[in-house]
Design a protein around this nucleic acid. Structure first.
Lengths: 208, 208
DNA sequence: CCTACCGATCGGTAGG
DNA sequence: CCTACCGATCGGTAGG
């Protein structure tokens, strides 16, 4: 697997640099606690100077969600793109997620765990963007579960995703690294009895 | 099982009434988003009138956490107090938690899911109180897992708690009731192979 | 319990 | 990109 340290490039613009810090702040303070004044202060810009990059707080929140998606792709999804679709890829995605937690990619733990809970009851474009990003991640897990020939792929995705999120939850709240080990063991048990080669008529046609 | 509707009494004091609304607000807005001005407006008190019941925002947050503990005890723990310790009680606690999600006891979903994620990175007495409450809940699950003769009770508690929390997460974010069913199936599978009678030398001595 | 107020900070705007 | 400002709201206080 290849990680951020190997490929990360410095921010190509002020806007990118702002969003890098915004994602970090949102992982600890939430997307509401991410204030324009504080972000401006940290970037050594005036409030209005920063504001004009986005035009509204909501646009800043949406851009922050988009930036976090790019980070998640780079840190979790891309490094396992060479694993064969189906069981191997599913397993690699789950373990890759646990590695991303252990590497503390965001200072407040998984960005998505923080913002899904914050926005699930706040209708609007920000919640929709967060929900779409999470649907995409769950659908990716589900696609590989189906290729692996699982009887009930939705059940399996629910369970492995539950274990992965619980690892983040317990790791953050109790600062206990055993959470990662428990999650890994649980996920291994969930995947143990699956066939290891992809099956199904269109298995080869699925983009890897 | 007996639920809140059977036993709930009207608030015995202004303070209790305030805290009832505070817990509801915090389940949707978080404990930081719970503001004294808004809470006062909803209770038809002046800001300073409400403020003097607590003396500081932090004391309001601590009192809100305490009130939510009492609600959780009344809604999840007390109704299954008659189940035999060990496997039966563990199962009843897990399913009781899922029922409490389905009954929508708090408008924003499980209070604890909201505030643990909000405060895990904010050191101080509020985080400590939240952490202690969650440790107590996990310890209760662990105690009954041990009585049930589980090889690795910490692993089992991690898994059933993960499934329960995932039910809340998916139910809130996607408004999809299948999350409750998936969690119930996963928990059943986790508990399927356990012996059904309590065992161990001090099984009978455990308070029920 | 109230009115009236404090300084700080919020998102956002005017004007350059 | 900046300074200077807007009304609203924050937690909290003074005085009654």
């Amino acid at each position: 697997m290849r990680y951020a340290d190997d490929v990360a490039t410095p921010p190509a613009s002020t806007r990118e640099a702002i969003l890098g810090r915004a994602v970090e702040l949102a992982s600890t303070q939430g997307l509401e606690g991410l204030t324009i004044g504080r972000l401006a202060g940290e970037m050594k810009l005036s409030k209005s100077g920063l504001f004009r990059h986005f035009g509204s707080k909501q646009e800043l929140q949406l851009a922050t969600v988009e930036a976090a998606s790019a980070t998640f792709k780079r840190e979790v999804i891309d490094p396992v793109a060479d694993e064969p679709p189906g069981k191997s890829r599913l397993e690699a995605l789950c373990f890759g997620y646990l590695d991303y937690l252990e590497r503390r990619v965001f200072p407040g733990g998984c960005f998505w765990a923080a913002v899904t809970v914050e926005f699930d009851g706040r209708p609007g474009p920000v919640r929709d963007a967060i929900r779409d990003a999470q649907s995409g991640w769950l659908a990716m897990l589900g696609q590989h579960a189906r290729l692996a020939g699982v009887d009930d792929p939705e059940q399996l995705v629910f369970e492995v995703h539950a274990l992965a999120q619980e690892a983040n939850w317990a790791f953050q709240l109790f600062e206990d690294e055993r959470a990662i080990v428990w999650a890994r063991k649980g996920i291994e048990r969930c995947l143990r009895d699956l066939p290891s080669a992809p099956r199904g008529e269109f298995a080869d046609a699925v983009p890897s």
